[in-house]
């Protein structure tokens, strides 16, 4: 039940990305300053995604003595996290734009909390590995 609901909402979101003209058919064009603020939020999330992808490259390059499997895992997790962040960036941007046009409340999201926890776990793991001397 929850799964089908989730899949349906993902489907609706993806349809919305690819028919953005539909967003503009709804409601009234908001004050351009609000749209620009939404655009800057989108860019900030895009930078977060870019930073995670860059972090993945950094782990692979600057921890050369880390165990091969661990290094590849960290790198892949960071690359996937970066990809997820960029997808979330565009999704959140479209949803905010639509909410502003309809005069609704802006969407709330668990994503920032989830991302913060994931980054914290990853950082603690790397710190522990460095302290244990597994990186040299």
């Amino acid at each position: 039940m929850i799964l089908t609901d989730g899949l349906r909402s993902i489907g609706a979101a993806v349809r919305l990305w690819f028919s953005p003209a539909r967003v503009r058919e709804e409601g009234a064009t908001p004050d351009y300053r609000f749209s620009l603020a939404n655009e800057r939020t989108f860019l900030a999330w895009l930078r977060t995604g870019l930073a995670l992808v860059g972090g993945g490259f950094a782990v692979d390059q600057f921890l050369p003595r880390l165990h091969e499997g661990l290094r590849v895992t960290f790198t892949l997790v960071l690359l996937a996290g970066g990809a997820l962040c960029t997808l979330r960036a565009v999704n959140h941007w479209v949803r905010c734009e639509r909410a502003m046009r309809r005069g609704e409340d802006l969407p709330v999201s668990r994503f920032p909390t989830a991302l913060a926890l994931a980054v914290a776990v990853l950082a603690v793991a790397v710190v522990v590995l460095v302290l244990l001397g597994r990186t040299d």
Binding site: V23, F42, L46, V53, L76, L79, G82, A83
Partner: peptide
């Protein structure tokens, strides 16, 4: 306003770069 096509293309570029990394 930011054209949605630009937003999608930027995201596609970033995803492709991450894929290159993989």
């Amino acid at each position: 306003g930011l054209p949605p096509r630009t937003a999608l293309l930027l995201v596609a570029c970033t995803l492709a770069l991450a894929l290159c990394g993989v």
